[in-house]
């Protein structure tokens, strides 16, 4: 399968990354190449195989419902590129 410019634009949008024309061309070529390589997985019949999503056999890991002190708001907001009146500030969001 090929990844063309249209597919690149679609996944760039999903990824929230603006791409230049040059990047689109390069990535389309490179990702098509990689996709070609990973097609080799289809050599394997995996119908009867369980997927392995975790690298650990742990299960049922919980913490108790206990309060811990939160971080200071000032410390948190200082990390932000833009904040005002105790809020994080972003360009206007329209629903």
């Amino acid at each position: 399968m090929d990844i063309g410019i249209k597919e690149i634009e679609h996944i760039a949008n999903l990824s929230r990354i603006t791409l230049t024309v040059e990047e689109k061309n390069t990535f389309a070529k490179q990702l098509t190449n990689i996709l070609g390589y990973i097609e080799k997985l289809n050599e394997l019949d995996t119908d009867e195989v369980q997927p392995m999503a975790y690298a650990t056999s742990l299960k049922n890991v919980f913490r108790e419902d206990k309060l811990k002190s939160s971080f200071s708001r000032q410390e948190i907001l200082e990390l932000s590129p833009s904040s005002t009146n105790g809020f994080f500030k972003v360009p206007k969001v329209i629903e």
Binding site: I3, E7, I8, I11, A12, L14, S15, R16, I17, T18, L19, E23, T26, F27, Q30, L31, I34, V90, P91, K92, V93
Partner: peptide, 28 residues
């Protein structure tokens, strides 16, 4: 002026090409 543009620019400017390539492929 627009949140989606902000995200897309921040990430276009902030990430290098290998990271972009992997994010794109992962989303694909």
């Amino acid at each position: 002026d627009n949140i989606i543009d902000m995200y897309s620019r921040v990430r276009a400017e902030g990430f290098g090409s290998e990271v972009k390539r992997r994010i794109l492929f992962g989303n694909y």
